[in-house]
Design a protein around this nucleic acid. Structure first.
Lengths: 195, 195
DNA sequence: CCTACCGATCGGTAGG
DNA sequence: CCTACCGATCGGTAGG
């Protein structure tokens, strides 16, 4: 019984993982359940023994990584870091998510519009909170003269979207190592914030 | 006859404009020709008197703005600017495209994957050239000590994707003016490059 | 620019 | 997990 459940769970995991890969490659609406079934190696109808609907898969992909991002940000409260160090930590976290969980991160960032009404509203509100929390850190950093005066909103948008550029590295020739790219982006983004 | 042609051209323009708006909002695959026809005010079948196919519309939207970006970059050659000034000029251009031609710019950046094989290959190769050209300017700027040493590839990716962050400003509450955002982003991105 | 319609494909269900 | 199939919708065409 325990074994059967483990098997079932891992088949569902496989489906979600393949889905993330296909949603990233072709986008959510352009990926059919038949395509997905084929890449898993079963018939389309059989998918529904493991998942409830196409959009449930999208939700799972997006919220499991979005939750991790929120957790990392929340954990900074008690870490005893300066404001600038906190921003660096968040930035590194996003860069590493982009490298280590490329498919999931990409789907979250590019396919969230296709969430259904309620999860969509949840996601948007989570993200607004996330941005506001980062803005708060930057505002505090400016007040304490760790960070040079800049519109906090712009700093946050710039950092969070800059990371998306690394997607092209992932696609194309990999001339550079992940560490090299991370350090250079940190130098640029965090160096540009220092007071 | 001239008048009839003008009329016909402007109807096609209307279709393409409405399409850009809907592709931005819902994505290319999730936008149906029936949706588009309704927003134009005609039947779906009637669209085909003005356009050849759904994907032709996408091509038009993407390449007319992509061409303008390439033109701006090419025009910098004879402008007598320093390398850093050239990068600033490119960055400002993208920020302004984001504000002034929001729908088109957004579609280019987010929906290019849905181009058909040949136009897709053309777009990818254009973009690779664009990135390499910017890398060349930054490399030259580093050599001449205008720009601080940083991986040029990372600088280009960071600048080009940072601009995408402004999309959220466009969506949500508009607490700031376009000028304010542009100047702050330039301060951050170009200030962070100065040697 | 419309009515009428095509074949293909979609997400998903029934029943075993 | 499969076969068989549902109603809905897709991009696009014929013919006027």
């Amino acid at each position: 019984m325990a074994k059967a459940q483990r098997k079932k769970a891992s088949k569902k995991d496989l489906i979600v993982q393949k889905a993330a890969s296909m949603f990233r490659e072709k986008g959510f609406p352009a990926t059919s359940m038949r395509d997905l079934a084929e890449s898993v190696g079963i018939e389309a109808a059989s998918l529904y023994n493991h998942i409830q609907s196409k959009s449930e898969i999208l939700q799972q992909i997006i919220f499991r990584i979005s939750d991790d991002c929120n957790k990392q940000l929340a954990d900074l409260d008690n870490a005893g870091l300066t404001n600038l160090q906190k921003i660096e930590s968040v930035t590194r976290f996003h860069i590493q998510m982009m490298f280590q969980r490329f498919e999931d991160y990409h789907v979250m960032i590019n396919e969230w519009i296709h969430l259904e009404a309620q999860p969509l509203a949840d996601f948007i509100s989570q993200r607004r909170n996330y941005v506001q929390c980062m803005e708060g850190i930057i505002t505090a950093g400016i007040k304490e003269k760790e960070i040079k005066p800049i519109l906090p909103y712009i700093a946050v948008l710039t950092i969070l979207s800059a990371v998306r550029g690394l997607e092209f590295w992932h696609r194309s020739q990999k001339h550079y190592t992940a560490e090299e790219l991370e350090e250079n982006m940190i130098t640029y983004l965090i160096g540009g914030l220092k007071a």
